[in-house]
Simulated assay, not measured.
Amino acid sequence: MHLTVLGRVDTIAPPVGIPLVGGFVRAGFPSPADDYIEADLDLVAHLIQHPSATFYLRAKGTSMIDDGIHDGDLLIVDRSLTARRGHVVIMCVDGDLTCKRLSKIGDRYYLTTTNPNFKPIPLSGHDCHAWGVVTHNIHVLAPGFSV
C-alpha cells in the first residue's frame, strides 16, 4: 500500500460543529428514530487527540482492504503514539511509507495484512522506523463523493 501525505491538522481553524443526532442508528431492521439533535460535534476535536502531531494520509493499494482500508481512503495518523503490536501503523521501510499491521510472529516483528495476496514483511533486514499510528480511517460510501 502506497501513501500520499496530504498535510497536518489545522490547529488554528475555528471548530466546525455538525449536528449530532441523539440515540443510535440500527444497521439491521429499521426502528423509530430519535427525532432530536443532541449537540453539535466538532469532528476534529472528536477524532484527533494530538493535533500538532496528527497528519492526513491518502491510502493507495489493496494490501489493507481486508482490514477495512480501501484504495483512496483518508487515514488519520498520530505520530505521537507509540506503535504497539496489533496497531495499524505507518512505517517507513527502506525509505518508503507503507501502511500495515505491526505483528509479532515467533520472536520477530513483521508488518502484516489480512489480505492473503501479501506476504509478511520482516522488520529485521530492512531500514525501518515507525512513522505513526493510524487512529481512524475515513471511507467513502456514497458514489460520487470523495474525501
Rank of each mutant, 00 (worst) to 15 (best):
R26L: 02
T62Y: 02
S63E: 06
I18W: 12
P30I: 04
V5W: 00
G61C: 04
V77Y: 05
P51T: 09
A39G: 06
F55A: 00
D67I: 03
V88Y: 01
I12V: 14
H70A: 09
A39V: 07
G72N: 12
V9G: 07
V77L: 04
T4R: 12
D66A: 05
H87A: 07
V9E: 07
Y36F: 15
L3Y: 03
D73L: 12
Y36Q: 11
I48K: 01
P15S: 11
T113Y: 01
C99K: 10
C92A: 08
T82A: 05
G22F: 14
P32N: 11
V25R: 10
G72T: 10
D67P: 00
D40I: 08
R84E: 14
G61W: 09
G72R: 08
L102Q: 06
I90V: 15
L102M: 12
R85I: 15
D94K: 10
P14G: 06
T114I: 11
L43P: 14
L97V: 05
I76Y: 01
T112I: 15
C99A: 15
L97F: 15
I48E: 03
D67H: 06
D107V: 05
A33W: 09
P30V: 02
H87L: 02
P14V: 12
I69L: 04
A83W: 02
V77E: 01
H46D: 11
L111E: 02
S63P: 02
G86L: 13
V93K: 03
D96H: 10
D96G: 08
A45M: 08
Y109H: 14
G7R: 14
F29P: 00
L3F: 06
P15K: 08
D96C: 03
S103E: 14
L81V: 13
A39Y: 12
I105C: 01
V77K: 02
T11D: 07
C92Q: 10
L6K: 13
P51D: 04
K104I: 15
V77Q: 01
P15V: 13
K104R: 15
A39Q: 15
D40F: 13
L47Q: 05
R101G: 05
I48C: 09
D35P: 05
G86T: 10
T98W: 01
L41G: 09
T112F: 09
D107W: 05
E38M: 04
V21S: 01
L3K: 07
D67T: 10
R85H: 12
T62Q: 10
V16I: 15
L6I: 14
I69G: 00
G106C: 07
D67Q: 06
Q49M: 03
P15L: 08
V93C: 06
D73M: 10
G61S: 04
L97K: 00
R85C: 12
A33E: 14
H70C: 08
H50Q: 04
H50P: 03
